[in-house]
């Protein structure tokens, strides 16, 4: 009934309103993936553009050449294999750290009186509106050998040798958790704040202690927010380039950095495309998971 009413309102011009954003996204979001896929089978060449065509028409012959060399490279050089593994490992643990830090923050904020709640939420979001690059840059000054953290710790007498944090996986973890924390807090908060308080009262009324109530009621009901937040951290973190580039070192070479190097330094576009295709394949599952929860939110559905 409701759908029918909606249709009645927007009938004329409906197709146009759908078509404009739809076509834009098809052209500039979806089609590029097809092209990446195509070019990942091309050969690198010194020309403009720096790759070969897959289909050639020469001397009355149509030749289709699929070059699997780029994928063979990915398997044969353990640099890539290690890059993928490192990326997934770093992204996974960063997500876990973000969750451990972000869930309590979201929980505390959701339990505040509405006025304080809005101010606190604003304070969580604000850093993510300021420049990402600048925030990572800020950590460079803090973490490096003669940086602020080491100076502070030396001055306090906690250590007598500067800690080597910069250019280690630790620095990358700090950077990712720092940059992505707000993206974990927001969806969890949005979920927690909608919870019906009477459920917790019912749980207490039935004899559950506060901690049991949290584990049995609040936590399972907030799983949607946890998954959305985790995917908002995990997926971009897998392909992260800036953070490993600026804070990481030889032990934290992530796949985003390899793709970048392949493209900008080696100018091997088909190679970079193959790296991207494999990364995309690895992310299909997390992307589907994210889409399921996000779409539910966007379409205003409440079913579990």
């Amino acid at each position: 009934m409701k759908a029918a009413a909606e249709r009645k309102i927007w009938r004329p011009g409906r197709s146009l309103v759908i078509a404009v954003p739809f076509i834009w996204l098809l052209l500039f979001f979806l089609a590029p993936f097809a092209i990446v896929f195509k070019i990942s089978f091309a050969e690198s060449q010194l020309a403009q553009p720096p790759f070969t065509n897959l289909v050639e028409w020469a001397e009355d012959m149509l030749t289709l050449s699929l070059n699997l060399f780029n994928y063979k490279d990915l398997v044969e050089y353990d640099l890539y294999l290690k890059g993928y593994l490192t990326s997934i490992k770093i992204a996974f643990f960063s997500t876990v750290f973000c969750l451990l830090l972000g869930y309590p923050i979201a929980y505390v904020i959701s339990r505040m009186p509405p006025h304080t709640r809005n101010v606190c939420l604003m304070l969580v979001i604000m850093p993510s509106w300021t420049s990402f690059l600048v925030r990572i840059y800020a950590w460079m000054g803090i973490l490096k050998g003669n940086g602020l953290l080491n100076n502070l710790l030396l001055w306090l007498g906690v250590i007598d040798q500067p800690l080597a944090i910069m250019h280690t996986p630790t620095a990358v973890y700090i950077g990712i958790v720092y940059a992505y924390l707000p993206f974990m807090v927001l969806p969890i908060y949005a979920n927690l704040v909608k919870h019906d308080h009477s459920l917790l009262e019912a749980s207490a009324d039935l004899g559950a202690k506060p901690w049991t109530s949290f584990l049995r009621i609040t936590l399972p009901l907030s799983i949607g927010g946890v998954i959305a937040g985790s995917m908002l951290v995990f997926i971009p973190a897998v392909g992260e380039f800036v953070i490993p580039e600026l804070l990481g070192g030889p032990n934290s070479i992530m796949i985003g950095k390899l793709l970048w190097a392949e493209f900008f330094n080696a100018r091997n576009w088909p190679g970079a495309a193959a790296v991207a295709v494999v990364m995309l394949l690895l992310l299909v599952l997390p992307l589907t998971l994210f889409h399921r929860y996000q779409a539910r939110d966007l379409e205003g559905r409440e079913d579990a």
């Binding site: 009477s198 459920l199 009262e201 019912a202 009324d205 399972p220 009901l221 579990a304």
Partner: peptide
């Protein structure tokens, strides 16, 4: 006694059934 220690139970107006 905290609510969870009291030997009485309540039926809530919204029922407060655990949805999961």
């Amino acid at each position: 006694l905290a609510p969870y220690q009291r030997p009485m139970n309540m039926m809530f107006q919204s029922y407060a059934l655990f949805p999961h």
